[in-house]
Amino acid sequence: MQIEVLFFGSLKDITGEASLLLADAKDTDTVQEQLQKRYPALAAAKYFTALNKEMITANKTLREGDTVALMPPFSGG
C-alpha cells in the first residue's frame, strides 16, 4: 500500500521536499512516527494534519492512494 505525504510552509524547509511516498503506514499516527524518525526537527514543529484535504484531529486508518498533508499554522491574507 502506498500513500502520499505533502509538506507545506515552514515544514518544507525541514524536509527539503514538497512530497514523498510511504509504503508501510497503516494509519496517520504511523505516518507521523515514520516522518519524525526521518526528520527529527518535525517533532518540535507545530502543524495540523489533513487526510484527503479534510482536517483530522485523531488517528485515521489509511487506504491505498490516500494523501496526508502536514500543514503549519495558516498565514494567508
Partner: peptide, 19 residues
C-alpha cells in the same frame, strides 16, 4: 485557508509569517 506567507527581508533572509 491553507495558505502560507514567507516574509522576504531586505537582508536576503526570510521568516514565516504568523496570522
Amino acid at each position: 485557508l491553507p495558505v502560507w506567507g514567507k516574509e522576504i527581508l531586505d537582508t536576503e533572509q526570510s521568516v514565516w509569517k504568523e496570522n
